[in-house]
Each structure stands twice: as structure tokens, then as C-alpha cells.
């Protein structure tokens, strides 16, 4: 048996046995999974469809700690005939925030057994987006993959919601005071004009 054949068979059987991601009707969202046969930490996978390609990205471990080595694997096959993409894929990283900082390149990987693998270490906890880019038939392809490193705390939504409610409360309070003042002015015009509250 040629040495590459077991690898190819394993990949083929993997794709035949593994059903689509667990999030049953939602493409493009990551799903977390646990390996039954080993004590490895959970991994995360995402399937998506882009242009002529069906792309699967997987991250291991699903929740790396800051400073821990993480891996992203990408597999792309043409929708028409299932032929795997064999060019190069460039990986980069950015913060997953409303105002992200500039993107940092991680590396460009050639194909290896039809899979593109990128290892990396992130030193700070946070929510990140790993972006994979490749060109096929003159068309650019960009796939984003969310990744959480460590246990980042997100209080922004609470601050925004609290801010909106507080602003409304202040606005209503001011409007009510004006209403009361207008009412008093109608009832006691003289007192109102002299600034006497009429207590």
C-alpha cells in the first residue's frame, strides 16, 4: 500500500462518517464538539459555503488559554465536483470588537493532505476572529472564524443597556419637572414669574 493511501483513506472516512455541524440548520456558525475516544479538550468546527467552495474550518482546542498553542485547520472543496482546493491559504487575526484594531498576519500555508493547517499562540485573553484568505479562479475568498482565548469578560452590553435606561430616566424626569413647572405657572402665574415655588 502506498504511504499516502492510509492518510487519504482516513481523511475520506472522516468526511464520510462525520455529519455536518451540530447546529442543525445554521451554516456559518461554530459548533463545539468533544472527542469520545481521547482525553483531549473540545474542538470547534464551522462549515460554510462561499462562492464555488464548501469550506470547513476547525480549531483545536476550542478554548485555548493565553500562551497556549492553538491550531486552525481549513478544508475547502469545490461544490460542483468535490475537488479539494490545493493552492495557498493566508491566515490572519483581529480582535472581535466593534472597533477592531488592525489585523495581524499569522502565516501562509501550503496544502498538506488536502488540509491547510496553521498553528499559533495568542498571548492575551479576548474574543478574536481568525481570517482565512485564498484565491481560486481569480476570485478572492475570505472566511472568518471566531475564537475565544481565555475567559474574557464582556460588560459592554450591560453598560450600553444601563446607559440607555439611565438616559431615558433622566429624560423623563426632566420632562416631568417641566410639566409640573408649566402646570404651576398656569395655576399661579404671579408666583411662577417671581420664582417663588409656593411651598
Amino acid at each position: 500500500m502506498p504511504p499516502r493511501l492510509p492518510t487519504l483513506m482516513m481523511l475520506l472516512s472522516t468526511w464520510l462518517l462525520c455529519a455536518p455541524v451540530q447546529a442543525h440548520h445554521v451554516l456559518g456558525r461554530p459548533a463545539y464538539a468533544l472527542s469520545e475516544d481521547s482525553n483531549t479538550p473540545p474542538s470547534m468546527a464551522m462549515e460554510t459555503q462561499i462562492g464555488d467552495y464548501f469550506v470547513t474550518m476547525m480549531a483545536f482546542p476550542a478554548f485555548p488559554r493565553p500562551g497556549e498553542t492553538a491550531r486552525v485547520n481549513l478544508y475547502a472543496r469545490r461544490i460542483e465536483d468535490g475537488a479539494p482546493f490545493t493552492g495557498e491559504v493566508a491566515f490572519s487575526l483581529r480582535d472581535d470588537t466593534w472597533l477592531p484594531a488592525s489585523e495581524e498576519p499569522i502565516g501562509t500555508q501550503p496544502v498538506d493532505d488536502n488540509v491547510f493547517r496553521q498553528g499559533f499562540i495568542i498571548s492575551e485573553a479576548g474574543e478574536y476572529i481568525v481570517t482565512a484568505r485564498f484565491h481560486a479562479a481569480g476570485q478572492p475568498y475570505v472566511i472568518d472564524f471566531p475564537m475565544r482565548v481565555g475567559d474574557p469578560a464582556s460588560v459592554t452590553p450591560l453598560v450600553v443597556a444601563g446607559g440607555v435606561v439611565l438616559s431615558l430616566l433622566v429624560g423623563v424626569n426632566v420632562a416631568q419637572r417641566r410639566r409640573i413647572a408649566r402646570r404651576r405657572a398656569r395655576v399661579h402665574p404671579a408666583r411662577s414669574a417671581t420664582g417663588d415655588g409656593g411651598a
Binding site: 464538539a33 468546527a45 476547525m58 498553542t69 485547520n73 498538506d112 493547517r117 496553521q118 498553528g119 499559533f120
Partner: peptide, 20 residues
């Protein structure tokens, strides 16, 4: 972020390929 190597042998036992 720092890029790291992923060896062929390491990739073959990568559970991310078969645990979905």
C-alpha cells in the same frame, strides 16, 4: 499572535478532523 509549526504526525491525530 505568534505563528507555530504543525507537524505532519501531529496533524494525523488531530481530533479536530474527526470529532464533529
Amino acid at each position: 499572535v505568534t505563528a507555530t509549526d504543525v507537524g505532519i504526525g501531529d496533524a494525523l491525530i488531530d481530533p479536530a478532523l474527526c470529532d464533529t
